[in-house]
Design a protein around this nucleic acid. Structure first.
Length: 823
RNA sequence: GCCGGGAUGGCGGAACUGGCAGACGCACCGGACUCAAAAUCCGGCGCCCGCAAGGGCGUGGGGGUUCAACUCCCCCUCCCGGCACCA
C-alpha cells in the first residue's frame, strides 16, 4: 500500500478540478438544481494568507463543497476588497503605487487559495479597484443621490490626524481610529453622507428575520440605539426662543428645576447675550475647543455656566434657570435637556455642584417619603408620581404613556423616538478609492456625472501622499471639467468613497461580474440572492454588515432588488490565536500559513482547524494537534485501502458482523449530515473518527462482510470530502476505483430503519441512581421494560425491604424505580 | 449602569425535545515492538473511600420545580463581547 503523501496528491487534484471547471456556478435558467449562494467576506489583498484566513476560508469551502455534493448549483465566488487605506498606506510605506502593490499581491494570494484547495468560481473574480467594478460603485452612489439618500453637509466630524482623512462614526472605536489607533479629533467640515438614519427603524425591525448570532444582532441593536420617549418644548422667558428637548421620562416633567444646553447648541450665543453671560460662555467654549473628547469628559464632570436666562416648564409654567454644560451632547437628541435632579444621576450631580433644588416627583414603592436634602443619589427607577399636579398617584411605567397623551392633547409635546445611529460619512480625503461622481458648476450647482460618462477614472499620475486634503485636488487634469449640464467650466469633487461603500454591494456584482451595461442582471439577482450563508469575522458586526443591509434596503425601495436583507444566515468564525493571545511578530509567536501548509498539507490544516472546536469560538493554535489529525488520516488511508483490497480477494462475504457495521454507517450518515447542516464540524469529525475505529475493528476481526465494509468506507470518504477534499478524492478514485469525481456527490443517504439502533443499553435507576444496565431490543415495549428492570438481580437486591412507590418507564432507554424506605 | 453571550476532567470540547455527564481528540501513565529512539499498536485516565466487589461525590455558587436537571425557574459570583454623561 502506498503511503499517504499530501504533498503529492493535493496539487494533482487541484489541477484536475480546475481543468474540469467543477466549481463554476451555472447561470443558465434551464439548470434545474436548487441554487446555493455561499459567500465569505472578500479579503483585502495584502500579499499573503495567514492562519486566520486558513480557518475562515476552510469553513466557507466546506459549506460550499457540502452543498455541491448535495446536488446544489453553488455560487462560491472570490474577489478582492482592494481599494482603501490599508492598500494605500502599505504602498506608501514601500514607495510603491497603490495600484502596483494591489495588483502585484492578487496573483500571489490567489495561488495560496488554490494550494488550500478552495472551491471558488474563479471566472467571477473581481477587485473593487477595477474600473469595471468601481464604475458601478459610482453608479450606486448616483442612485442614492437621486433618491435623496446621499447628501453633503457641514458638520463636526471625526478626523484622523495620522491617516489624514475623516472617518465614519463606525470607524471610531473608543475615540480612536479603528485602523491605526490614533486619537481622532473633531473638525467642522463639509462632507458627503448616506442617510442611513432614515432606515434606523427598518434596520432594527428586519433583524427579526435574520438567522444571525445574538452577539451580532445585539451589537447592531446597541449601535442603532433606539429609545422611546417624548419631545417637549420649553420657551425661553426672556427671548421667546422655543427649545425642544427629548426625554425618555416625561413622567418626571414636574421635577424639572433647571435647563441645560450643549456647548455647541446653535441658540446659545443669542441666549447668552440676552442673559449677560456671553463672556463666561465663550470662555467655556474656548476651553472645550482645546481639549479632545476624552479630556472633556474626564476634566470636570459637572462643569457648567449659568446663562442668565430662564426656561418655562410647559407643564406647570415654572421658570427654571438655564445653563450650558459639556455633559449635554449636541449630537444626541436635541442638544438640550431638562434637568431633573431627583431622578437622573447626572442632573443630580449637576444640581449639587451648582446649588440647585432637588425635587422628588417619583416616590419609590415601599419606602417612607424621601427627603430631597438627604438624598445621596438620584432615584431613576419606577414608582408613583407625586407633586405632579393632575398625575399624582399614577404609577410608572404606565404613567409615561399617560403623560405623553396628555402632552399631545395640550399641544405641549409629542411622543418621540431618538436614535444613537448617525448618518454614514462616506467621503474620504485620500487617493485610493472611487472618485465621487459629482461636478460643481458655478452656474448649475452640484451636478451628477451622467451615467454614460462613468466611470470617473481615478488618475494614476497623482501625488497621493496624504496632506489633509484630497490628493485628487492637486491634479488639475482631473479637477477641471466642463459642466455636463451647461458646458461651462466646472470642478470635480475630489474626495473618494469610503472602502465600505465598495463592499456594501459586491455580493450583487458576483452574479453578473462581467456585465458591461449594468451593475447586475435582475434575473440573476433574483435567482441567486439573497446570500444563503454568509461567513466572516465578527469585527464587521456593525460596519460592513450594517452598511450592506442599508444599501440593500435602499435598493429595494428603488425597485432595483427584490429583497430586503442581503444575508439570510450568518456565521462568524472566531479568531486564531497563539498561546492565549494574538499572533504577532512582536510577540514572536507568528505561525506562517505557508509553512504550515508545506509541512502538513491543506487537508490536515483544514481538519485541524475544524476539529479544534465550534467555528465561532476562538482557536488557539498552540493547543491543537495537526499531528493527531494526521494520524487519523493515516488510519483512514489504510482502512479504506484495506477495504478496497477485500474486493480483489473477495470470497469472504458473510454476514459475520450481523449488519452491525451497516447500522453504524447509516447512523453516522444521519448524524453527520445534521452536524454539517448546523456547521458543527468538530462534532462531525468526531463521529467520522468513530466510524473509522469501527471499520478498523471489523477489519481486525478477521471475517468481514465485503459489501458492508465497502459501504462504510465509501460513506466515510464521502463525508470526509468537504473537509479533506484531496484525500477523499484520491481514495474515492484511486483506492475505491470510482471513475467520476466525488466533488458533485452524491452525498450519502441513510436508511432510517438501519439508522435506528436494534439493540440498546437500557439504564435501570433506583431513586434516580443508575444501578444496572441491560441490553434490550430497541423496540421493547413498556411492560417488557418494566418486567426486565424489576427482574434485574441488582435491582431486586436494592429493593429488598423497600416499598416501590412508582416505576417510571421510558423504553427503551430508561426505567426509574421510585421507592420509599422502611429500613 | 444597560444589552447580549458564557462557565462541563490536566487541555480542546461532546451531550437530541428534561432521561447513562465527560463522546471524539490532545496531554499524561503503563505495556508491546526496537540495541535504542521515532513511528505504530494495545490498555488506563473526573474526584474521594475501598485489596476488590462496590459505594459516595461531581457540569461556577446557593435555592427551587421534577421520579429524573449540564438542560427549566429564582438569586448570586466570575469571564467574554457591545453600548455608555445617549437625556
Amino acid at each position: 500500500m502506498r503511503p499517504y503523501r499530501p504533498q503529492e496528491i493535493e496539487p494533482k487534484w487541484q489541477a484536475a478540478w480546475e481543468r474540469d471547471g467543477l466549481f463554476r456556478a451555472d447561470d443558465s435558467p434551464e439548470d434545474g438544481r436548487e441554487r446555493f449562494y455561499k459567500l465569505h467576506m472578500f479579503p483585502y489583498p495584502s500579499g499573503d494568507l495567514h492562519m486566520g484566513h486558513a480557518e475562515a476560508f476552510a469553513i466557507s469551502d466546506i459549506i460550499a463543497r457540502y452543498r455541491w455534493m448535495q446536488g446544489y448549483n453553488v455560487l462560491h465566488p472570490i474577489g478582492w476588497d482592494a481599494f482603501g487605506l490599508p492598500a494605500e498606506n502599505a504602498a506608501i510605506q514601500r514607495g510603491m503605487h497603490p495600484k502596483d502593490w494591489t495588483y502585484g499581491n492578487i496573483p500571489q494570494q490567489e495561488r495560496s487559495f488554490r494550494r488550500y484547495g478552495m472551491s471558488f468560481d474563479w471566472t467571477r473574480m473581481l477587485a473593487t479597484s477595477d474600473p469595471e467594478y468601481y464604475r458601478w460603485t459610482q453608479w450606486l452612489f448616483l442612485q442614492l443621490y437621486r433618491a435623496g439618500l446621499a447628501y453633503r453637509k457641514m458638520a463636526p466630524v471625526n478626523w484622523c490626524p495620522k491617516d489624514q482623512t475623516v472617518l465614519a462614526n463606525e470607524q471610531v472605536v473608543q475615540g480612536r481610529c479603528e485602523r491605526c489607533g490614533t486619537i481622532v479629533v473633531r473638525k467642522d467640515l463639509t462632507q458627503w453622507f448616506f442617510k442611513i438614519t432614515d432606515y434606523a427603524d427598518r434596520l432594527l425591525e428586519d433583524m427579526r428575520e435574520l438567522d444571525w448570532s445574538d452577539r451580532v444582532l445585539s451589537q447592531q441593536r446597541n449601535w442603532i440605539g433606539r429609545s422611546e420617549g417624548a419631545e417637549v418644548t420649553f420657551e425661553i422667558a426672556e427671548t421667546g426662543d422655543r427649545i425642544p428637548v427629548f426625554t425618555t421620562r416625561p413622567d418626571t416633567l414636574w421635577g424639572v428645576t433647571f435647563f441645560v444646553f450643549a456647548p455647541e447648541h446653535p441658540s446659545l450665543e443669542r441666549l447668552a447675550e440676552a442673559g449677560g453671560s456671553a463672556d463666561a460662555v465663550k470662555e467655556l467654549q474656548d476651553r472645550l475647543q482645546r481639549s479632545d473628547p476624552a479630556e472633556r469628559q474626564a476634566a470636570s464632570p459637572r462643569d457648567g455656566v449659568a446663562l442668565g436666562v430662564h426656561a418655562v416648564n410647559p407643564v406647570n409654567g415654572e421658570r427654571v434657570p438655564c445653563f450650558v454644560a459639556p455633559y449635554v451632547l449636541m449630537d444626541y437628541g436635541t442638544g438640550a435637556v431638562m434637568g431633573v435632579p431627583g431622578h437622573d444621576q447626572r442632573d443630580f450631580e449637576f444640581a449639587r455642584e451648582h446649588g440647585l433644588e432637588v425635587r422628588v416627583v417619583i416616590q419609590p414603592p415601599d419606602v417612607p417619603e424621601v427627603e430631597p436634602t438627604e438624598m445621596t443619589e438620584a432615584y431613576p427607577h419606577e414608582g408613583v408620581m407625586v407633586r405632579s399636579g393632575p398625575f399624582d398617584g399614577v404609577r410608572s411605567p404606565e404613567s409615561i404613556a399617560q403623560v405623553i397623551a396628555w402632552l399631545e392633547d395640550a399641544g405641549k409635546g409629542r411622543a418621540a423616538v431618538s436614535f444613537r445611529l448617525r448618518d454614514w460619512l462616506i467621503s474620504r480625503q485620500r487617493y485610493w478609492g472611487p472618485p465621487i461622481p459629482i461636478i460643481y458648476c458655478p452656474a448649475c450647482g452640484d451636478v451628477a456625472v451622467p451615467e454614460s460618462e462613468l466611470p470617473v477614472l481615478l488618475p494614476e499620475d497623482v501625488d497621493f501622499s496624504p496632506h489633509g486634503e484630497s490628493p485628487l485636488a492637486r491634479h488639475p487634469g482631473f479637477v477641471d471639467v466642463a459642466c455636463p449640464s451647461c458646458g461651462g467650466p466646472a470642478k470635480r469633487e475630489t474626495d473618494t468613497l469610503d472602502t465600505f461603500v465598495d463592499s456594501s454591494w459586491y455580493f450583487l456584482r458576483f452574479v453578473s461580474p462581467r456585465d458591461p451595461v449594468r451593475a447586475w442582471e435582475p434575473e440573476d439577482v433574483e435567482r441567486w440572492l439573497p446570500v444563503d450563508l454568509y461567513s466572516g469575522g465578527i469585527e464587521h458586526a456593525i460596519l460592513h454588515l450594517l452598511y450592506s443591509r442599508f444599501v440593500v434596503k435602499a435598493l429595494f425601495d428603488l425597485g432595483l432588488v427584490p429583497f430586503r436583507e442581503p444575508f439570510t444566515r450568518l456565521v462568524n468564525q472566531g479568531m486564531v490565536i497563539m498561546d492565549g493571545g494574538a499572533m504577532s511578530k512582536s510577540r514572536g509567536n507568528l505561525v506562517g500559513f505557508a509553512e504550515e501548509l508545506d509541512r502538513w498539507g491543506a487537508d490536515v490544516i483544514r481538519l485541524t482547524m475544524m476539529f479544534a472546536g465550534p467555528v465561532e469560538d476562538d482557536l488557539d493554535w498552540a493547543t491543537v494537534s495537526p499531528a493527531g489529525v494526521r494520524k487519523w488520516l493515516g488510519r483512514v488511508w489504510r482502512a479504506v485501502h484495506e477495504v478496497a483490497a477485500l474486493k480483489e480477494t473477495a470470497g469472504e462475504v458473510d454476514g459475520s458482523t450481523g449488519g452491525a457495521l451497516r447500522r453504524v454507517t447509516h447512523r453516522t450518515i444521519k448524524v453527520v449530515t445534521a452536524d454539517y447542516d448546523r456547521n458543527a464540524f468538530n462534532v462531525a469529525i468526531s463521529k467520522l473518527m468513530t466510524l473509522t475505529n469501527e471499520i478498523q475493528r471489523v477489519l481486525e476481526g478477521g471475517t468481514v462482510s465485503v459489501p458492508e465494509a465497502r459501504e462504510a468506507a465509501e460513506a466515510l470518504v464521502l463525508m470526509l470530502a468537504p473537509m479533506a477534499p484531496h484525500l477523499a478524492e484520491e481514495l474515492w478514485r484511486e483506492a475505491l476505483g470510482n471513475a467520476e469525481t466525488l466533488v458533485h456527490g452524491p452525498w450519502p443517504a441513510w436508511d432510517e430503519d438501519l439508522a435506528r439502533e436494534d439493540v440498546v443499553v437500557m439504564v435501570v435507576q433506583v431513586d434516580g441512581k443508575v444501578r444496572d444496565r441491560i441490553t434490550v431490543p430497541a423496540d421493547l415495549g413498556e411492560d417488557d421494560a418494566r418486567t426486565r428492570a424489576l427482574d434485574s438481580g441488582r435491582v431486586r437486591a436494592l429493593l429488598d425491604g423497600r416499598e416501590v412507590v412508582q416505576v417510571i418507564v421510558r423504553p427503551p432507554r430508561l426505567v426509574n424505580v421510585v421507592t420509599r424506605g422502611s429500613n
